[in-house]
């Protein structure tokens, strides 16, 4: 069964990146919340290649969550364009957005598990809503994802409120990947967890890229996990992109502010290390 209908990919295959498809292309994105004097995102440009882990870093209030909400089409920008799989999601017909959303998963910061349902029902919900499969088949799919994130099968019958912070993040990750998305977004996947659990989640994200060939966008404060998982890093600073590049490229950057953010000198980064 073809769950992902063929998507017209209007990708400009620029000669230097012939082998790498651009899954996400953001152009001149401006977002201003009503009532705020300044735009929160002041004309952002970047792209994400197929099969890479892109980490978006930045201090508190730099606009990371705002950018993520734009990328998953929850909010509309004031101007600019966002292309996912070649489709501009700023002006997209509802049915195309539906198809697009079936191919992407989102793990929200607080988990955002549905509290009135068990973990198992949480995992089954998107399957039941969007796929015409036998119940047993969907159960197998959700169990596979649960074991992928190293959660015990007994978790299926637990309510989200009964889970620990680390288990909750893992369950949220399992729900995000239950539809086998091509594109995964994670908001602060390892924030607020103890180092061992945090490292386990980082390993999971790397495993998702390697084993399932997902393209992954991670928003995070945590430098250690960012440096560990990132193929490339985007540094966001007060609504603008300071630098995009691999860890090496960033470390060799002459820009003082980039260096400050990388080693945690900037005042807002220090605060974030505690969060």
């Amino acid at each position: 069964m073809n769950r992902h209908p063929p998507f017209p990919s209007g990708l400009p295959n620029s000669p230097d990146n012939k082998e790498k498809e651009r899954i996400i292309e953001v152009e001149n994105l401006v977002v201003q919340y009503p009532g705020n004097p300044e735009p929160t995102l002041k004309g952002i440009d970047f792209h994400v290649y197929s099969g890479e882990i892109m980490v978006i870093m930045g201090g508190s209030g730099s606009g990371k969550s705002t950018l993520l909400r734009q990328l998953i089409a929850l909010d509309k920008p004031n101007s600019g364009s966002i292309r996912l799989f070649g489709k501009n999601i700023v002006k997209i017909p509802p049915l195309d957005l539906h198809d697009l959303r079936l191919r992407m998963g989102v793990a929200f910061q607080g988990g955002a598990m549905f509290n009135s349902m068990t973990v198992g029902e949480n995992l089954l919900l998107p399957l039941r809503e969007h796929l015409n499969l036998a119940e047993t088949q969907m159960e197998i799919m959700s169990r596979m994802k649960l074991s992928f994130v190293n959660l015990d099968m007994s978790t299926l019958d637990k309510m989200p409120s009964e889970l620990s912070g680390g288990m909750l993040k893992r369950a949220a990750l399992a729900r995000a990947i239950v539809m086998d998305p091509l594109l995964l977004f994670c908001d602060e996947p390892s924030a607020g967890l103890d180092p061992a659990v945090s490292a386990a989640i980082d390993d999971l994200i790397i495993k998702l890229r390697d084993a399932l060939n997902m393209t992954i966008v991670v928003v995070t404060h945590e430098r250690t996990s960012a440096f560990k998982i990132a193929d490339r890093i985007t540094i966001l600073d007060r609504g603008e992109i300071l630098k995009v590049g691999t860890l090496d490229e960033l470390q060799n950057s002459k820009n003082q502010r980039v260096q400050d953010l990388l080693i945690g000198n900037a005042e807002n980064v220090d605060v974030n290390a505690w969060l």
């Binding site: 909400r69 929850l74 929200f108 607080g110 955002a112 549905f114 509290n115 919900l125 969007h130």
Partner: peptide
């Protein structure tokens, strides 16, 4: 209201529900 604040409504939208 609770689902809104805990981002559950956003999660629903992101799953195209």
């Amino acid at each position: 209201a609770t689902m809104n604040l805990s981002q559950e409504l956003d999660a629903l939208r992101s799953m195209s529900i």
